[in-house]
Simulated scan of single mutants.
Amino acid sequence: MTVPNLYGDPRLVGLYDLLNPAAADTAFYLDLAQSSGADRVLDIGCGTGLLSCALADRGHDVTGIDPSPAMLAVARSRAGGERVTWIEGDAGMARRGAADLAVMTGHVAQVFVDDASWRQTLSAAYDALRPGGCLAFESRNPACEPWRAWTPEASRRRVESTTYGWVDVWHRLIDVQGECVRFATHYGFERGGAEIVAESELQFRNQDALETTLREAGFVSMTWYGGWSREPVDAASRELVVVAIRD
């Protein structure tokens, strides 16, 4: 069975946290919110709300925005979910000038495959921030060509769900066209023998392209990291992590 929307099928949404648990990226954004003194945080593409709820648990006033009602249903039911303001939609629905910090985690930045939607999102994030506020996000570094490892052999994982039992997950590369990469994620359910295939498309912008669009949106300075330990960017960096300040 092939599904057009990875985050629309409740079975795949139910597996999301197992496949994407809290890790070094979560710690980075939690530390950034604290060190920057951000009282109000906007989580764009909040998904199942793992980071949003962790931020709220630390005393931040958090708004989580996501277009997927299935993901938001999980977010609302999470422990501490009642302390977060949840909005179904995109960044343009955020309150203007209300946030000290906006974040886009889980490589959300790469979901915007066309430049128009990407620029609209950056503009909306800019509008949502107070003067001097920060936008932080990460994107996979195209110089490392991470899609080369998106093969069934190299990417296969197995997770156990209390609802669905053991599930095998792997990627299959479909196509690479310039900066755009298309791939399929296969989910093999041991219980019942079902297989779901979700096709995805991601944009791999390099650091120069990301910086250009950030400046066009009005962000005046940027600090770049090559990973979650705040190491500098180099040719081997797997991540491009940026903290951008609006004027």
Rank of each mutant, 00 (worst) to 15 (best):
M93I: 04
L214V: 11
T48C: 11
E231P: 01
W150A: 02
W170T: 08
D39N: 12
M222V: 14
P4I: 01
R140Y: 00
D25T: 01
G165K: 11
S139T: 09
T213C: 14
A235K: 14
Q110N: 02
R119Y: 00
L173I: 06
G178D: 15
M93L: 15
G45S: 09
G133K: 11
T85E: 03
G226F: 11
I245D: 08
W228D: 05
E195R: 15
G14N: 05
D127P: 00
A99R: 01
S221K: 15
S117F: 10
C53D: 00
A73M: 10
G92F: 10
G178W: 12
M1H: 14
S68K: 13
G81K: 13
R95K: 11
A198S: 14
R78A: 07
S155D: 02
L122G: 00
L18A: 07
Y7S: 00
S35I: 07
R246C: 12
W150R: 02
T163E: 04
F219Q: 08
V3K: 03
P69K: 03
D25R: 03
D114Y: 03
A198V: 14
L129G: 02
D115V: 15
F112L: 12
P131K: 03
F28S: 05
C134A: 13
P10Y: 03
E153K: 15
V3N: 11
A109C: 07
M71I: 10
P146N: 09
T212R: 15
A217W: 03
F112Q: 08
A38E: 09
P67Q: 04
I87M: 05
D25I: 04
Y16R: 01
D17V: 08
D90G: 13
V103A: 05
Q203C: 14
T121F: 01
I87P: 02
S200L: 14
P232M: 06
G192V: 09
D127K: 02
Y187C: 08
Q110I: 01
F137C: 00
N141S: 03
P146E: 06
D90W: 02
S161L: 11
A73L: 12
V108P: 04
C180I: 15
H171A: 10
L50K: 10
R157N: 03
R76C: 03
L210F: 14
C53H: 05
V167E: 03
L51W: 04
A136T: 11
G165W: 10
P67V: 01
T63Y: 09
A33W: 09
A154C: 04
Q34F: 11
R230N: 00
G64C: 06
I174C: 11
R158V: 15
C134K: 14
